[in-house]
């Protein structure tokens, strides 16, 4: 098995050098009441080597489904209906099954969840769980994992001995989230997936967790995917942003470009809806309407039109295709923006 992985690890599987993971035409559906409902529709994106790519969207946008699909961990009643997810050095994962997949998860790709306490065993001490993790991945020296965890803990200004001998309920929310990140990093994965890593935290804990992620990512050049609904977190951390709405990518750009020149009306309203400390409070506008549910996403035309201030006739029937801007680094799918700039 490990021999097979090393063989593969040198292969690029047709990816260009700056791309760590390529997602192509990914469709994920959930079977609800006899109907197949799409959670992700034709999602294509490149996750760049050594960068932090953020996926931003509201509840129901499919962002958490995307995180699961990246690990081929979508579970019933959902399934990956079509599409490919290809990693440098690992290959295509949507076709992988069982043991092959298990080896990859945690070792090559690892995930930090929103509520880290849910992914920890409440009845076992943190240290013992780390040892279990190391053993389940057949590491030659499980103790080294504890050492690594201790180092990470100290870097996160946690008392390493205390944390490793604690049960999860003995830690505060911010500490648990950091321990969740230790779990994510301790096996030295190539790719780190983080699903809402700071949502349950207050601003102070959030900002220190973000700082930790930032410094470790820089140091290890760790390819990171950050799933969130909070543009503030994106702005603090991400190099690139993919905006997801109703299961579709509607815009993608570098973070600074996206914040400064958002093209899609949805992205623009997302940024305008952030409560800020500066500027006239009257300038902020709430995003009208509600995010669509799986069942209410229109099957044709633009998915955002119901809440869009610039809705046109063409939006009802024709799905806008991507337009590229800024050397092809910025893409968006909007009829109105397209018409405005032509």
């Amino acid at each position: 098995m490990s021999a097979k992985l090393t063989d593969r690890s040198q292969q690029d599987f047709g990816l260009s050098p700056e791309v760590a993971c390529q997602v192509r035409d990914l469709n994920v559906t959930y079977r609800v009441d006899g109907r197949e409902l799409s959670a992700l529709r034709e999602v294509s994106l490149d996750i760049r080597q050594g960068q932090i790519t953020a996926v931003i969207g509201e509840s129901g946008s499919g962002k958490s489904t995307l995180a699961l699909a990246l690990m081929n961990a979508v579970s019933s009643p959902g399934r990956i209906a079509s599409g490919r997810v290809t990693y440098r050095g690992l290959g295509e994962v949507t076709g992988m099954r069982g043991e092959e997949l298990r080896r990859i998860r945690g070792k090559a790709i690892s995930m930090v969840f929103q509520a880290s306490q849910n992914s920890m065993n409440p009845l076992t001490r943190i240290g013992a769980q780390l040892l279990d993790l190391a053993r389940s991945h057949d590491l030659p020296n499980p103790r080294a994992v504890l050492r690594e965890a201790g180092d990470l803990a100290s870097r996160m200004s946690l008392d390493a001995d205390r944390v490793l001998t604690s049960y999860q309920h003995q830690l505060s929310g911010g500490m648990r989230q950091r321990v969740g990140i230790i779990f994510g990093l301790v096996l030295k994965p190539e790719i780190l997936l983080m699903d809402e890593p700071t949502t349950a935290l207050d601003v102070l804990s959030q900002s220190s967790v973000l700082e930790i992620v930032r410094s470790i990512q820089r140091e290890r050049q760790l390819t990171t995917v950050l799933i969130t609904h909070d543009m503030g977190v994106v702005a603090e951390l991400a190099d690139r942003v993919v905006v997801l709405y109703a299961g579709r990518v509607v815009e993608e750009a570098s973070t600074a470009e996206l914040l400064r020149h958002p093209r899609h009306p949805y992205t623009r309203s997302l940024i305008q809806a952030i409560p800020r400390l500066t500027g006239d409070p009257g300038d902020a506008k709430a995003l009208e309407g509600q995010p669509p549910s799986l069942a209410s996403v229109p099957n044709q035309g633009c998915v955002f039109r119901e809440r869009c201030p610039y809705r046109m006739d063409v939006c009802e029937t024709i799905l806008p295709s991507f337009r590229f801007d800024g050397d092809g680094e910025h893409r968006f799918a909007c009829h109105y923006e397209e018409a405005r700039h032509d």
Binding site: Q290, S296, P298
Partner: peptide, 11 residues
């Protein structure tokens, strides 16, 4: 109301 009118049979 507009949303549910636009998507009959929606949730």
């Amino acid at each position: 109301s507009t949303a549910s009118a636009a998507f009959p049979g929606a949730a």
